[in-house]
Write a protein that binds this DNA or RNA. Structure first.
Lengths: 198, 198
DNA sequence: TTTTAAACTAAACAATCGGTTAGTTTTGAG
DNA sequence: CTCAAAACTAACCGATTGTTTAGTTTAAAA
């Protein structure tokens, strides 16, 4: 949750020099590149361009900032999902979503993978429930969108739909891992093969 | 590198109470479960059952211990590769390797993923070259074994071999990611679909 | 048994971690 | 203008990080 926003009838002595949405995006990118533990408050201060005090008054704690970063990440990812939902193509739409994800993770030569899966493993036990929850929520959403797309082919049984949706979902995990290591040609080739039997 | 081993003509006042191979394996498992940063020397002391001093005299630093853990991990992974090499099956042999990997990562209900890919993202920049090197070395090895297996089908062109080997390699990355999140049924289903189009 | 050097224990190291707080600056309502 | 309260700066907090070191124990060679 973001910091307290005063209502207009109270006096408002000073305005923030920074935009919380903007700085949280910078924090998100830092977590995405370096993971949770490796990203120190010092690094966050520098990257976000604001003081520690400001970070704490806006986000409460490092964990709080990280959670806000995850929300920010998820919002960006949701835009890709919305594009997929809006697409008139079914299987080809999903394929395009795979390509969109590569572009989304790209930094210079390689991608940053997926922020959630990147950090899910290293996070302390008391935060794991939260991130696991976020992850399962997200995977369910994506799988459902995949399934809806696949159902446009009415010749497919519901069992097959379920199976193929799971298959595509896990393939997405492979892709997100792979963006950090493999080049564009290899990734394109990977996607081509994934969709061969759909 | 392990600690100094004195030659037999020197006097040997006292023997180590622990076996370096054994304790490095315990360290490896801890890194595998928790990642690099989250795993503290304190946790390592407890898990390895030896004192900090002993860890430092044997492995020099936390980084040194981690590198040794990676080597240990790679050795275990190599055993799976050797099994695959020895197999008379070609594509089915690779499929079995996928199943073997799931069993390899399994802890209780879910898997631990791949130690290298789990930690590659969170590691500090000065260590990244090393782990990236290890990773690319490993991926090249695995890809070559896959390619050799695929070549047993002489109807396939070298272009197709190359393409399919890459495809299988990246699919392995997906699998390693997926072991941490998806259940056995979903993983089996995933593997089934991967091999459908080969 | 004596000797000696490595293995061990435990306390302490500086540095950094996430987080706080006292004090100053700023700004807009009254 | 005045002034109150939030935004800001910077120094500081205890705890924990990885690492070292002084001192003790131990076991094998002489």
């Amino acid at each position: 949750m973001f910091s307290f926003v005063p209502s207009s009838n109270l006096i408002m002595p000073r305005t923030k020099k920074y935009n919380e949405q903007e700085v949280v995006e910078k924090a998100m990118n830092l977590f995405w590149r370096n993971g949770y533990e490796t990203t120190s408050m010092q690094m966050l201060e520098k990257e976000m361009g604001i003081n520690k005090f400001s970070i704490y008054s806006s986000f409460g704690s490092k964990d709080g900032l990280f959670m806000e970063s995850l929300k920010c990440y998820k919002q960006k990812l949701n835009k890709l999902i919305e594009t997929l939902k809006a697409s008139s193509d079914d299987v080809m739409g999903i394929k395009q979503y795979f390509y969109d994800f590569i572009a989304f993770t790209k930094v210079t030569d390689f991608g940053k993978g997926c922020l959630i899966t990147n950090t899910a493993n290293e996070i302390r036990e008391d935060c794991q429930d939260c991130i696991k929850e976020l992850l399962s929520q997200f995977t369910n959403d994506v799988k459902e969108v995949f399934a809806t797309k696949l159902r446009q082919d009415t010749t497919k049984s519901e069992t097959i739909i379920e199976e193929q949706a799971d298959y595509l979902l896990i393939s997405m995990f492979g892709l997100s891992s792979a963006t950090r290591i493999f080049n564009k040609t290899q990734l394109d080739n990977y996607i081509k093969n994934i969709f061969k039997n759909l």
